[in-house]
Amino acid sequence: MLTPSLPAPTATKPRQPPAPRTLTAGERWRLRAPLLPALVFAIALTQVPFLLTLYYSVQSQNLLRPGSKEFVGLANYGKVFTDELFRNAVFNTVTLTASTVILSMLLGIGLAVLLDKKFLGRSVVRTLLITPFLVMPAAAALLWKTSMFNPVFGLVNWMLSPFGVDNVDWASRYPMPAIVGVLVWQWTPFMMLIVLAGLQSQSPEVLEAAKVDGANAWQTFRRVTLPHLRQFIELAILLGSIFIVQTFDAIFMITQGGPGQATTNLPYFIYQQAFRAFDVGEAAAAGVIVVVATITIAMVALRVISNLFTEESA
């Protein structure tokens, strides 16, 4: 999907609006003034902390031993990369993110196609469908951990009992599928909404033309709708990945990263390093690695948004 055929990010190479020559430096700053508070604030609260994280990542520091700080170069990175638990967390993060994104996208497309049609109570259906995304993730996680996944009284087992499923302790026997299940439930509405916006932005004429040309519903979907949806699907997948990589609530509430390390993903791993082991150096190094990995996805995401943006302002 991340084909290199995507146009280069035009966004980062802005075409300067032709500024009237009469503007003095002072006037330009006056124009720019409304932007500055937000810009300074964003830099102070996001870029500076990241630079500090970089700095911490080359120090050895434990919050439990004040004054223990010293420069150790890349030792923390070495420690992180050889750490069995870190590699496990990377693997879990990839599994969790990929399965959640793929499953929720497929479901999201299906639901969006349904919602694009006219039927009785469509707006109610839409409202009900977006609700899982609105439920506070921590509350949703608690709900699934107890009422849904409980081996004896859980509704999942109760509903599956006609199929011979009996007293399965989902959260401990199938921890990863359980977490993925909760996340898919939560993220499908997100995917659905973006795909639906894409479907509804299709021009009726094109669909009409396809019909006039004798295309059946599937051919129209495959040849006309899907190419049109492509950039919406890409956007949803990329934004979804960026947010789902950061999953923390569900893991903290349902499995606490376990059993063992079965569901420890990177955010939970870093949280443990920082706030359980108070190993600042290693946590910071892991944090930097996560950022570098995220930047790769984010760059592509920005490029897709930039394309949508260029089309819109063109």
Binding site: F50, L63, G287, V290
Partner: peptide, 29 residues
């Protein structure tokens, strides 16, 4: 204003930064 696209995309990129990358400095600060 000049470089408005850059500024817009800068804001967007800050939203894509994982929270785990800034939590330690914020906590220590």
């Amino acid at each position: 204003v000049g470089r408005w696209r850059d500024a817009l995309f800068f804001f967007l990129s800050t939203r894509m930064m994982p929270a785990v990358a800034s939590i330690l400095p914020l906590y220590i600060l």
